[in-house]
Design a binder for these strands. Structure first.
Length: 862
RNA sequence: GCUCACGUGGCGGAAUGGCAGACGCGUACGGCUCAGGACCGUAUGGGGAAACCCGUGGAGGUUCGACUCCUCUCGUGAGCACCA
């Protein structure tokens, strides 16, 4: 009939404290030189992955990571750190623009509304962000510096000798435009008709767009690219020192995809079957290069395959084969990426009529084209070694090409199809050499003769950086006589035109091209009409948080050195976010960071020292939350019923932060009961039904057993927060609260400590109870956010008597209580005297007795 | 296919190589209540009347002792995917 009675008045407490924190600027972190800055305090930078403010508002996944960082931030503040804990909005990009198109409103409007909604929702959860540092990637004062950083990339090159980005002025070659870190290229791109834009490789999943799942086709277009491949080795090597999950490091390594091997030149045989005379190329390509990780199997190369798209195909195909080759290429072109990469399909191919010369043995081998060789990797051509490569074997068997075994497995296993490390055979130059030595030997032999060279290949491609969309940063670039040039820094920020019609044109021409006035820069010069991808703004936002209102520099030197530097570990001290950004955002941000580091704008070579991925929260049915299943939980609904503190604590109590776990409303209820028990430790209802200070709260000394559990809790909660084991920290606090629930007198000193320990988890409840205790007890005073975190006293954890486990042959038989200082001999004697032990031993001889001091005695019988 | 991670009660989960199942949910019984989907208490891995026996996906191994370390295997999830 009437509304469910609230277990404690969180509906009044929570808004009260949220307003108080705002008013008191409780969580503002001063920068060096600012008021209240204390140089004695160490810094701690704890960062969330800032959200795209979509129209749907928060889902339960957002606050999972945010609560974790908030607990750490509040804990570190109490521990005496100057804590940078900011929040902002990644508001440019496809999701925001798709939403705007769907609702028919201008993205400026929808973004403003969505940001307001997100912000009010975050505030309702009680996060201790320093809102004075809020940034928004779509704010001209912000993207001015995104554009500025792009100009740094544009005006830099990668010097292979120093392995660093340097200003383009240090490049003395003929064509600086050919080496810039931001460059224009005509490249085959992922064109998405539905979205009206090109996408980065990273944004295409199984031949469909990551956003929306629309079809993506390959198509050559003129695009801006960022030369991330130049940094491949550093992005790989410098992962080592980072405190990141191994799985994320593995994903990045896999994405960069470094493989070592050799490029080998195969001469094209002339029509008559003899090798082309050197120095005469004519219309036929003199050589074809292949990349291989197994140069030691060169003698087994019995044919060659060139990717169908490879331009060499036109040059080498004989007249007799031209028709069938063209037919085959037509078939391939008609296939989607998805069909082409379908692994289960049979190998296909077509003979070019040409032959290559195997440089090791001079044999003529046929050159085929086949779609299992990709134009985009290596040289777009391979040597076919069917005996030792499953794909080549399948191909050779289908087209009846010769197979030659050149590798002996270490044990007596089958040679055909073996692809591991073994011994080279049937290979005169490297006969009987183990694989490693054989690779080295044959590569040196090829190098001496100019037939090949050791080579490293990467899967990583340069980053396609332009989009044909409206809602992104315009490039600070102008075009004059078909040549690009940088916009002067003084003209930043370059704002996009205020278009009414911002929808994609569908032709590949960017929407900005519709703004004729805006495009015109001067006589003979016009603006670039592409925009930057969503990732641009998120590549450096963590730097802007250090100094968000600086209008002279993207980040001031002193704030950058203070927050990002500061010895070890450098950079962001703790970065928590979803695993979905493992390769995209995290790789791009590291790349930009390294460029800015090389150009001496930054103190550390890496941005994020410690990274943690929170696990996904599933619906109550164990399925991924989705409208389709009707299992979506809205955080605000939960807060209405149980309060923000219960919501926060439940999200942390569910299980390990990094683990995937299903939601449970019953679980929220359990945590809510725990918080209500904390409330009732201190409060009771009077006759009128009002909450008043409980008479049980007294200034008495805690009992010895209470002190022990209290200090065990201080110890465990402290270390659990450091290791992000919030679920077990809460368990321990539950144990503490359970221990006090039935105590007739609740010592104020113990309650005070409990409130401090629980404060990072349930900040509203503990703030209120702290204030109530402070009204009556002199031992509690001030604001709970300004207190010192308690230290545990190890001596209080030690007991006079301890329980010793008695085992026979490793099996538990009994437990005895002995004095703490009992000697090993005494323990052994006590064990042997024990009835249950004697029963278990029976008549058997005792072979050995293992005594672990303070733990157990294990009796081993023979 | 390759790589990585993970398999523990009815459920979420806990356990520096040393008492498996902390804590919570659920369930049962009891108390307090006009009432309870509130609160408090007790019990709760399986089998057995009990003594005890069996138990961390499965099979081996290392060890006085294994959820924990090693090998193989099965299952689940994630990532990559004809990467030469």
């Amino acid at each position: 009939m009437n509304e469910r009675r609230k277990p404690y008045p969180f509906d009044q407490i929570e808004p009260k404290w949220q307003a108080t924190w705002d008013k008191n600027r409780s969580f503002h972190a001063p920068n060096p030189g600012e008021e209240n800055f204390d140089p004695a305090k160490p810094k701690f930078y704890v960062l969330d992955m800032f959200p795209y403010p979509s129209g749907a508002g928060l889902h339960v996944g957002h606050p999972e990571g945010y609560t974790a960082t908030d607990i750490v931030a509040r804990y570190k503040r109490l521990r005496g750190f100057n804590v940078l804990h900011p929040m902002g909005w990644d508001a440019f990009g496809l999701p925001a623009e798709q939403y705007a198109i769907k609702t028919g409103q201008h993205p400026v409007i929808t973004t403003r509304e969505n940001v307001a909604k997100f912000k009010s929702q975050l505030k309702r959860i009680g996060f201790s962000y320093d809102w004075e540092r809020e940034v928004n990637t779509t704010d001209p004062a912000y993207y001015k510096w995104t554009q500025w950083i792009f100009l740094q990339l544009y005006n830099s090159w990668f010097n292979p000798e120093t392995r660093k980005a340097e200003r383009i002025s240090s490049y003395h070659g003929a064509d600086p435009d050919g080496v810039r870190l931001a460059y224009v290229a005509e490249v085959p791109v992922n064109w998405c008709q539905e979205l009206g834009t090109v996408l980065a490789n990273e944004e295409v999943i199984d031949g469909k767009s990551e956003v929306g799942g629309f079809a993506v086709a390959r198509r050559p277009m003129r695009q801006w690219m960022l030369r991330i491949t130049a940094f491949a080795d550093r992005l790989l090597d410098e992962l080592e020192g980072l405190d990141w999950p191994d799985s994320i490091k593995a994903l990045q390594r896999n994405w960069i995809g470094r493989s070592e091997g050799a490029e080998i030149r195969f001469a094209i045989a002339g029509r008559g079957g003899s090798p082309q005379p050197p120095g005469r190329s004519g219309s036929i390509a003199p050589t074809i290069k292949v990349f291989t990780t197994r140069p030691d199997t060169l003698y087994g190369a019995t044919y060659m395959v060139v990717a169908p798209e490879n331009p060499l195909v036109d040059q080498i195909t004989t007249e007799e084969q031209r028709e069938s080759i063209e037919t085959y290429r037509g078939e391939i072109a008609a296939k989607s990426d998805l069909e082409r990469t379908d692994l289960s399909k049979e190998k296909t191919g077509s003979f070019t009529g040409a032959f290559a010369i195997n440089p090791a043995n001079g044999e003529r081998i046929p050159i085929w084209i086949a779609d299992y060789v990709m134009m985009g990797y290596g040289t777009g051509a391979i040597m076919g070694v069917p005996a030792h490569d499953a794909r080549d074997l399948e191909f050779a068997q289908k087209f009846e090409l010769p197979v030659r075994i050149v590798l002996q497995p270490p044990d007596g296993r089958e040679s055909l199809g073996f692809a591991g490390d073994g011994t080279a055979i049937n290979s005169p130059l490297i006969e009987n050499l183990p694989t490693e030595a054989a690779k080295q030997e044959i590569t040196e032999w090829l190098e001496e003769r100019g037939l090949g060279a050791r080579s490293i290949n990467y899967k990583l491609r340069d980053w396609l950086f332009s989009r044909q969309r409206y809602w992104g940063e315009p490039f600070p670039i102008i075009w004059r006589d078909g040549k690009h040039e940088a916009l002067p820094e003084s003209e930043l920020p370059l704002e996009p035109p205020a278009l009414e019609d911002f929808k994609p044109t569908g032709t590949g021409e960017p929407p900005l091209a519709k703004a004729k006035d805006w495009i015109r820069y001067s006589d003979g010069a016009s603006r670039e009409t592409n925009t930057m991808p969503q990732w641009a703004g998120s590549c450096w936002y963590y730097l802007r948080f250090c100094d968000p209102r600086n209008d002279q520099r993207f980040v001031g030197e002193e704030p950058e050195q203070y927050w990002m530097g500061g010895g070890k570990p450098g950079g962001v001290d703790l970065y928590i976010g979803g695993v979905e950004h493992a390769v995209l955002h995290l790789l791009y941000a590291r790349f930009w960071h390294k460029v800015l580091f090389d150009l001496e704008y930054l103190s550390t070579p890496e941005p994020f020292q410690r990274l943690v991925n929170q696990g996904m929260i599933l619906g109550e049915d164990g399925r991924k939350m989705s409208k389709r299943w009707g299992n979506v939980i809205d955080p605000i609904d939960v807060i209405e019923i149980y309060g923000a503190d219960a919501f926060r604590c439940y999200e942390m109590f569910m299980g390990p932060l990094v683990q995937m776990k299903p939601w449970s409303m019953k679980g929220v209820e359990g945590v809510s009961r725990f918080l209500a028990r904390v409330w009732r430790l201190i409060m009771e209802e009077n006759q009128a039904g009002e909450w008043v200070l409980s008479g049980g709260v007294q200034e008495v000394d805690p009992q010895k057993s209470e002190l022990k559990i209290l200090h065990a809790t201080i110890k465990k909660v402290s270390s659990d927060i450091e290791t992000l084991s919030f679920n077990t920290a809460i368990s321990q606090m539950m144990i503490l609260v359970n221990a006090f629930t039935n105590a007739p007198a609740k010592p104020v000193s113990a309650l005070r400590t409990l409130l401090l320990l629980l404060n990072p988890f349930a900040p509203h409840l503990t703030s209120e109870l702290w204030q109530i205790l402070a009204e009556t007890f002199p031992g509690v005073h001030g604001d709970i956010t300004r207190q010192r975190w308690p230290d545990h006293d190890e001596r209080l954890l030690i007991e006079d008597e301890i329980e010793i486990v008695l085992q026979v042959n490793g099996k538990l038989r009994d437990k005895i209580t002995v004095a703490l200082d009992a000697t090993d001999a005494a323990l052994e004697a006590a064990a042997l005297a024990n009835k249950k032990v004697q029963n278990a031993v029976g008549g058997q001889t005792i072979r050995k007795v293992v005594v672990v001091p303070k733990k157990l005695v294990n009796i081993v019988t023979g």
